[in-house]
Design a protein around this nucleic acid. Sequence first.
DNA 1: AGACAAACCTGTCTGC
DNA 2: TGCAGACAGGTTTGTC
Length: 282
Amino acid sequence: MPELPEVETVRLTLAPAVGMQAIDVWTSGMPLRLNQPVDATGLRDAAYRRRIEGVRRRGKYLIIDFVGSPRSVLVHLGMSGRLRLVKSSAEMPRHTHVVFHLIGKGKKRQLRYTDPRRFGQISLLQRDAEKEHPSLAQLGMDPLLEALTGNWLYQRTRYSRQRIKTFLLDQSVIAGIGNIYASEALWQARIAPSLRTHRLSRQRAQLLAEAVPMVFQHALNHGGTSLRDFVDADGVSGSHSGYLRVYGREGEPCLRRSCGHAIRRTVIQGRATFYCPVCQKR
DNA sequence: AGACAAACCTGTCTGC
DNA sequence: TGCAGACAGGTTTGTC
């Protein structure tokens, strides 16, 4: 489900939870990614009787900080994870695995993590040693937190012989690009997904470096992409799926002015990949 | 090094 | 209507 713009959308819609105090933490006992059990005791220790200080994002990870707590909560939504802020009376959906009970401003709320496929992750993050956490240590630059420059990208692409789409999906280079936006950014930059990374020219590195944050920002402006089940913390679907230029458009005309050639679907990295065979060049 | 497949899971959609 | 099979926004692991 969620790539960087969706995760950022969730982060933004969690704003009303900031300042609220956790008075209980419930867990389902079901394991998440890699069959990892959720550390219920650790979550309770980190959150109990503490107010949410803020919610940060790195790539596709969310970090929930609690005032005065040495540990934060690290969340990855995987494919089907949802983080929702709801009234306590709201019906509990199936596959809910973690619930933070919150109070504040005379209101009671629940911050719920729901994840049918359980590919997501909820773990604890030692705040004074964030950089060493295995999930965060490997992450590359974040295109919405730092400037992705053509020169940097050009340098980083010199020694990889992977196909450029595979390179873009590598979270240790650029954090946050997923399967949809890899296709979208490459279409925007007119680069074929099968291009060998080290063959990217300086000029095209510049185009790609501009395309990635542009595509992200555009998606963010529409509340993210909802193909089937993405919703923000308020349960609202993103409207960006109607704005995708290539993803999921096999056989439909390329939307670039004066092109119109049929979009093709192929498989790279075992993932559906969409591109225009005419205006995207190797 | 890099490509690929399988694995982890459940839900949804398509075609017969 | 029912059922099998394909497929899904992510990441890790093992094999060739």
